[in-house]
Each structure stands twice: as C-alpha cells, then as structure tokens.
C-alpha cells in the first residue's frame, strides 16, 4: 500500500537544539493517528511539517511517495489537499459564512456548490444556521467548531489537528470527538495531537508517541 506521508531522516532544529529527529515513519491514507508526547516533544513541529508550512532542516518528506519540493509553486497544489487546524484557531473578521467559505473561494468553488458545502460543514459540527453570526462574537467552543467546519468544508485528504479538544467545553469536546472519529470513514486521514491519555483509546486508530523529537513507540 502506498503511504500518504513518508519521512526519511527528517531533522529539524532551532539553533543548537534538535526538536525533531525522525528516521523513518510512514503514515497511510484513511487512518486516524493520535500524536502524543510531553510539551516540547515536537508534536506541533511535526504537524507544521506535515501541513507543508515549514520545511525540515534535513532529510526528505514524501507526499504520496513523491518527494516534496519546497517552492511556492510546487507547494500550493499539495497544500490544497492538506488542512491544519490550530490549537486556538484564528477566525477572520466578518461573518461565519465567509470564514467557512474562505478556502472554497480560493479553490474556485462558487455559487450553489459553495452554499451547499458551507451549510453541510456547519451542520456537521452542530452549528446549523450560524452562517450570518459575526465570527468575533462566538464563544470559545463555537469558534473551535466554526474552525473545524472551515477545514471540513474543503473535504481535505488530510486533516491535521493540533489539540483540537483542549480548550473547549465538555459538550463541544464530546461532539467534536464524534465528528473526528467518523472522518477516516469518509476518506479523510486524520492526524491529531493530544494531551488527554484517554483519547488514543477512545478514538481508536494508531498512536505515535514522541520523546524529545524522536519516535518512542508506535502502536
């Protein structure tokens, strides 16, 4: 089976400190990975790498078995298949609808199709009818859900989630957990970091544990 991502001899350091050192790791499509590790273990760095935002200092990253070329022109089509959801997501000024439609517009999706996808995404995260609300006036949990909807509307191949359930209320957390768990079944590969020791078990899928930037174990 072809891997979605393959990391070979990846090194990333800030100054003298090595923050990521992964010699060999393959991630397969249609799966759910939970990424754990202490603070500073390199989880976010790994996510940013997989989101194709920051290049590694050394080694090779392959996407669908093709080495990634770190030039703007080559990255854009790849980035449009991968979406990263930040731990505390940023919502653009304006209404919820324009936020959720942001990525769709960039992909040239307009008119009814755009309306349909936004509506669907909002329903999926449990916020039907929130389209005309002002983004800045939402609660923390609502904002997190809108950000999730904004990512889901793109129907990405890969969804990278950085602590998606850390800063939200219990109800939102449980709701989003259900949404996330269902994604691999819809063809979206999920890679999420988490602090909660129960998540890997509850969500199923594979566990990747990082210690000081290195792969500690895989289950």
């Amino acid at each position: 089976m072809n891997a979605l991502y393959r990391l070979i001899g990846i090194r990333k350091s800030h100054g003298q400190r090595t923050v990521l050192a992964i010699d060999d790791l393959a991630l397969y499509p249609g799966k759910l990975y939970t990424l754990t590790g202490a603070n500073g273990a390199g989880k976010t760095t790994l996510l940013n790498l997989l989101a194709l935002l920051t290049p590694p200092c050394g080694g090779e990253l392959r996407y669908e078995e093709e080495p990634v070329r770190w030039s703007n022109a080559a990255l854009l089509p790849l980035r449009r298949q991968v979406t990263l959801l930040h731990q505390s997501p940023y919502l653009f000024d304006g209404i919820v609808f324009t936020n959720v439609a942001f990525g769709l517009k960039l992909r040239g999706i307009r008119g009814e199709e755009k309306q349909r996808r936004v509506k669907q995404a909002l329903e999926l995260v449990g916020l039907p009818g929130f389209g005309q609300r002002r983004a800045r006036e939402l609660s923390g949990g609502e904002a997190q859900r809108v950000a999730m909807a904004r990512a889901l509307a793109l129907e990405p191949k890969v969804l990278l989630l950085d602590e998606p359930l850390a800063n939200v209320d219990r109800a939102t957390s449980e709701y989003l957990e259900g949404v996330i768990a269902a994604l691999p079944g819809r063809g979206t590969t999920v890679i999420m970091t988490t602090h909660d020791p129960e998540h890997p078990g509850r969500l199923g899928g594979e566990l990747i544990h990082l210690v000081a930037g290195e792969l500690a174990c895989r289950i």
Binding site: L53, R79, H86, F92
Partner: peptide, 19 residues
C-alpha cells in the same frame, strides 16, 4: 496566526498577504 491560517486553507503567498 493570520498568514498561517490562510496558507493552511489553501491560499497562495500573495493571497495570504492580501487576507
């Protein structure tokens, strides 16, 4: 977070600066 957010949603460098 503005520029990274725009980038992860599929904006090019110019579009993200515009945003």
């Amino acid at each position: 977070r503005i520029i990274p957010t725009a980038l992860t949603l599929g904006a090019g460098p110019f579009q993200s600066v515009l945003q």
